[in-house]
Write a protein that binds this DNA or RNA. Structure first.
Length: 556
RNA sequence: GGCCCAUUGGUCAAUCGGUUAAGACGCAGCCCUCUCAAGGCUGAAUGAUGGGUUCGAUUCCCGUAUGGGUCACCA
């Protein structure tokens, strides 16, 4: 025992703080609620899976009036990407996933349990590592990378379990005297856990989503402090989640296999275990098989995909909520006017199988969401979005805001007929583009999209437009307007009654919908649009007339 | 390969041993209709597989198959 203490003092001569000091400095939190965290590595943008993870953590904390904090796990300096923290925090903010504590931006940390950036916590890890060494639960390992890879190759050749354990853990069998000797002589080392586990023995832990999980004990002398003096994930996780007083460790299922390591570490440190929950991975269909959402292959893997395309934040969040707990949807249908966060998620209800990312479902939720907005709300949201993500749309809408508002109000501010053709804000640039003169003119530069037939010839189309223009009155109400269209139809040999037309199609050149279609194309150059009367009302008399006139001229 | 997790329609899924196996998305058809969207109605489509346990199994247990994860001085 004495010897271990001597060794630990030799390895950390400057360090005189103890684990007890840390316990005092980071006392148990005086709250009832759950303490959860999101702990990403600063390796780039916010991944969709990470958004899922952070949402659950956030909700569990909020639902219990607990604390949700953000911790940055930057112990791998090689993989770190500049600017990630700024990106990460700003993207989380956009989705409304604000931490109560921890890293708020790349320059700001809030809370009494920090620092919340792992690279700033070296001393804390060292104190804990020293503690382990002084107890004989950890030791310095002097093996070089070359030695380790030789061992690994041999293990592979002999089909043995790879890793640093048992007889392969050369340095664990060094006597303390030898260790002291080597350290004194300045030999380079890293620090390993001295595992006392038995791989043949099973232990179990309770996962809040999956229930009891039986798994082999850890017997690997895993590295806890690397040669750059920073901890590995396993050690940092145990130390941080203890001293930040996390009650619920909730992370992706890829961590399940390393839980035995964590369990041993918690125990050897004398820490109380937090509760664990491991989320299923969000998958994507790739041909016939499923795979993890991949940063490189799948555009929807990055949260910026939703932002760039103008998916309403609320829709993305609702979609995620429905993946977290599938009873969210029925709840939503029953509680139309409630806030989505009035819904309490439950870990036990979460499906443990990996869910496919379903863009159709997201689209549907998004359509539904947008359809419920008033035109004023919609305009405001699109303006906010486009200002940052789509300057062209922003400029177009700003040409005449009153006009834009009317445009978005078509078949909207009327509960009976809700349009659901807008999936995301970006769709403005396709489905509403003909409202803008500049864009419309560009569009017809290559001609109109009329489809001529034997009966409906270019000449007939021209006649329809001329006749329509002749009797058009902008002040008509909708019924009057339609009766005039009927008049145009019957005067030129079209049938103005659909039922009659279906009975005797051969008697007519075409029907009322052909006439409306011709007018539609002359004004919008689209075969499909919302109510053509409403469109004309928004465009105004002079634009309508000049567009029809232009079209007639084109046909000559 | 070892270990771990998973497996109900194309997708998300409900069922706390007994159901005509919900619902949603998507798909198809019909109705409504100036086109589209929406809406209404209808439809096709599901318990991977082999054994147990049980009066009875989608539900519990075991094997097999398939998919995913993990075996670093990365997280």
């Amino acid at each position: 025992m004495e010897k271990y203490i001597e060794l630990s003092n030799l390895m950390f001569p400057e360090l005189n703080k103890t684990v007890e000091d840390l316990e005092t400095k980071y006392p148990k939190r005086n709250i009832e609620g759950s303490v959860t965290r999101f702990a990403p590595s600063p390796t780039g943008f916010l991944h969709t899976g990470a958004l899922f993870t952070s949402l659950v953590n956030k909700r569990i904390a909020d639902q219990t009036n607990g604390i949700f904090y953000l911790r940055i796990e930057d112990t791998d300096k090689k993989r770190e990407v500049d600017g990630s923290v700024t990106l990460l925090t700003s993207e989380m903010k956009k989705f409304g996933i604000l931490p109560n504590e921890g890293v708020m931006s790349d320059t700001e940390e809030v809370g009494e349990y920090g620092p919340y950036t792992q690279s700033k916590r070296e001393e804390i890890y060292n104190i804990c590592a020293k503690h382990l060494i002084s107890k004989g639960f950890a030791y310095p390992c002097f093996c070089t990378n070359e030695m380790l890879s030789v061992t690994r190759e041999m293990q592979e050749k002999n089909k043995q379990m790879s890793g640093y354990y048992g007889i392969y853990a050369r340095c664990r069998n060094l006597s303390v005297e030898e260790m002291i000797e080597k350290v004194k002589s300045g030999e380079k080392y890293i620090i390993r856990l001295k595992s006392s586990g038995n791989h043949m023995k099973k232990i179990s832990f309770i996962d809040m989503i999956r229930g009891k999980i039986d798994i082999a004990e850890n017997d690997q002398d895993i590295v806890i402090i690397k040669s750059d003096n920073l901890p590995t994930y396993h050690f940092a996780h145990v130390v941080d989640d203890h001293f930040m007083r996390t009650t619920h460790v909730m992370r992706g299922e890829e961590w399940i296999p390393s839980v035995p390591i964590h369990l041993e570490l918690f125990t050897k440190m004398g820490f109380k275990l937090p509760k664990f929950a491991h989320f299923p991975t969000i998958m994507v269909q790739d041909g016939v098989s499923k795979r993890k959402l991949s940063k490189r292959k799948d555009k929807e893997a990055a949260v910026s995909f939703f932002l760039n395309n103008g998916y309403p934040i609320e829709a993305v969040l609702e979609y995620l909520l429905s993946v977290i707990n599938s009873d969210y949807e029925p709840w939503r249908m029953k509680n139309l006017d409630k806030d989505m966060f009035d819904f309490n998620i439950r870990l036990e209800k979460m499906n443990s199988a990996g869910a496919l990312f379903d863009i159709f479902k997201l689209n549907d939720i998004s359509k539904e969401y947008i359809s419920k907005l008033t035109s004023k709300e919609l305009l405001d949201k699109i303006l906010i979005w486009s200002k940052e993500y789509n300057q062209e749309i922003f400029d177009l809408l700003n040409i005449d805001l009153v006009f834009s508002l009317k445009m978005l109000g078509i078949e909207r501010d009327n509960v009976k007929k809700i349009r659901k053709d807008l999936v995301k804000y970006e769709d403005i640039s396709t489905s509403f583009i003909y409202f803008f003169d500049k864009k419309f003119e560009e569009d017809i530069r290559n001609g109109y999209d009329f489809e001529y037939t034997d009966k409906i010839t270019k000449e007939v189309v021209k006649q329809v437009l001329s006749k329509y223009l002749e009797i058009y009155n902008h002040n008509d109400d909708k019924e009057l307007w339609f009766s005039r269209v009927k008049l145009v139809a019957s005067s030129l040999g079209f049938c103005s009654d659909m039922k009659e037309y279906k009975l005797n199609p051969e008697k007519y050149i075409g029907n009322i919908s052909d006439v409306a279609g011709i007018i539609r194309i002359s004004i919008t150059n689209r075969k499909n649009t919302p109510d053509i009367y409403a469109i004309m009302q928004v465009l105004g008399e002079s634009k309508v007339k000049s567009r029809i006139n232009n079209c007639i001229n084109y046909l000559i």
